[in-house]
Write a protein that binds this DNA or RNA. Structure first.
Length: 292
DNA sequence: ACCCAGGATGGAA
DNA sequence: TTCCATCATGGG
């Protein structure tokens, strides 16, 4: 054990690390053969593993205040209480039954916004590759355990703001490059303050985000749900649309985006975003296992 | 070769 | 309104 390392124990039950860290809400985690997950949060390398009674975390350097990780993992959330707010119907029962322990993280706003700007029409594997390239090129090296492979922070908005579109395109992000660049510049200039979004009503926060080029309702809701604490934000991507159409609109005409929004806003309750993540994970897992 | 991916946008029908 | 092409890139 590295003498410079620091550890933290988080008592929690119903926390499925694999489902949570690898379900498309965050893109920087990797699972080691021994089952531990490592990533970079708030500019620190960190390893998290499941242990009897909860989660155990380890950093490369001493940590005084663990708030950054407690905030990120949201282990104090009582999952059972969240699940109880879901509508009592067979679809949600099946979705919850398929992946107990799936949780929502509370991510850093800029990394979350930038990541989902890069997510449009990309598979999760590719999103991870793009973000990895971006961090290697423009992030800051962070301390890692002795002998460990190097790791980088997620580049700050101010760092990306000083780049050119060509620099970003070199990270294989294609037409998303100008979108990311504009977002970085507006955030760095203080024209868009991500830290104040959580205090706004959902509609206003969403409008602030969709004022960015390349950010529509779906990406905005990802940012609001995964980093802003908006429990009712409900991102509708291809998987969730598929879930809603197949599981709730079976015998009806193909719903318009407007109808889907209306349904999502009224059917799933105060933790609609949580329900959405269960549907997302449920559909993806089904697709992965059903097909030969 | 073809279709699809945690989309968004502007213009045509 | 709804439909459609386009954007860039890589996996299956």
């Amino acid at each position: 054990m590295d003498p410079a390392a620091d550890t933290l124990m988080l008592p929690v039950r119903d926390y499925d690390l694999a489902a949570t860290l690898d379900c498309g809400q965050a893109f920087r985690w990797s699972c080691r053969p021994d089952g531990a997950w490592e990533g970079v949060v708030a500019g620190r390398w960190v390893e998290v593993r499941s242990v009897p009674g909860g989660l155990a975390a380890r950093t490369a350097e001493p940590v005084g205040d663990w708030h950054w990780l407690r905030q990120y993992l949201q282990a104090e959330v009582e999952l059972a209480a969240v699940l109880r707010t879901f509508p009592d119907e067979p679809v949600m029962q099946a979705a919850v039954g398929a992946c107990t322990g799936l949780r929502l993280l509370r991510q850093e706003p800029w990394e979350c916004l930038a990541s989902f700007i890069l997510s449009s029409t990309k598979q999760i594997v590719q999103i991870r590759q793009i973000i990895d390239l971006l961090c290697r090129r423009f992030g800051e090296p962070v301390a890692v355990p002795l002998g460990h492979a190097p790791a980088w922070s997620f580049p700050a908005a101010g760092r990306l703001a000083e780049l050119t579109e060509t620099d970003l395109r070199a990270c294989r992000m294609g037409f998303r490059a100008p979108h990311l660049l504009q977002a970085a510049r507006r955030v760095a200039a203080g024209e868009l303050n991500l830290d104040t979004l959580p205090a706004l009503p959902l509609e206003e926060a969403r409008a602030a985000l969709t004022s960015l080029r390349g950010v529509g309702d779906k990406i905005a809701d990802c940012v609001l749900l995964f980093s802003g604490g908006f429990g009712r934000a409900f991102p509708v991507d291809v998987w969730v649309r598929r879930a809603l159409c197949e599981l709730y609109f079976r015998r009806r005409r193909r719903p318009t985006p407007r109808q889907l929004r209306q349904f999502a806003d009224t059917h799933f309750g105060p933790n609609a975003g949580y329900a959405q993540q269960y549907l997302f994970h449920y559909m993806r897992r089904r697709a992965a296992t059903d097909t030969p």
